[in-house]
Every structure is written in C-alpha cells, then in structure tokens.
Amino acid sequence: MDLAARKYSFIQELTTVDESLLGKLEKFLKANKKDWFSELSTEEQAEIEIGIKQADNNEFVSHETVMGKFAKWH
C-alpha cells in the first residue's frame, strides 16, 4: 500500500475513534512536530536571524548579480 492509500485508510479509521483517543492522537502529533530551527545551534540560529534582518533591510546582492559575476565559470 502506498503512502497516499495508507493516509486515506488512517483518515477513515479516525472517523471511528472516541473523544479520548482523538485527544491522545492530537497530543502525540503536536509533540512530535519538529521545528528545524529549534534543532540548530544558537550560533546557527543567530546567523540566520542576521541574514533575515539584512534581507529585510535590502542589504543583499541579488541572485542575478551574483550569477552575472560568475557566469564565465558556469
């Protein structure tokens, strides 16, 4: 059974669960959501934050400009 069929089957099963089990499933799903950013080191997070601030302030070089400078090697 492929992934889409498994998901559909699971959704069908969810229609038959009681309130208690549904609550447990919701807690499980929320607890197991991984946020990739929180898994980074504090140094990596800081660098990303700096990059976002620079982009917000238009302190960046466009992709087209960079590709133009390096076109002779591509």
Rank of each mutant, 00 (worst) to 15 (best):
D2W: 03
L3Q: 02
A4M: 05
A5E: 03
A5R: 06
Y8V: 02
F10L: 11
Q12M: 08
E13F: 05
L14T: 13
L14N: 10
T16I: 13
V17G: 03
D18P: 04
D18H: 04
D18Q: 10
E19H: 07
E19K: 08
L21N: 02
L22Q: 10
K24Q: 11
K24F: 04
L25N: 04
E26T: 15
E26S: 13
K27S: 14
K27A: 13
F28N: 14
L29Y: 13
K33V: 04
K33F: 03
K33D: 06
K34G: 12
W36P: 07
W36L: 09
W36A: 14
F37Q: 08
F37H: 11
S38D: 11
L40D: 05
L40G: 12
T42W: 05
T42R: 00
T42V: 00
E44L: 06
G51E: 11
I52T: 14
I52F: 15
I52N: 15
I52E: 15
Q54K: 13
Q54G: 09
A55H: 15
A55W: 12
D56R: 05
N57R: 11
N57S: 08
V61H: 02
V61P: 07
V61G: 01
S62F: 07
S62H: 01
E64W: 07
T65W: 12
T65V: 15
T65G: 00
T65N: 14
M67H: 10
G68Y: 02
K72M: 10
W73Y: 13
W73A: 04
H74L: 08
H74F: 02
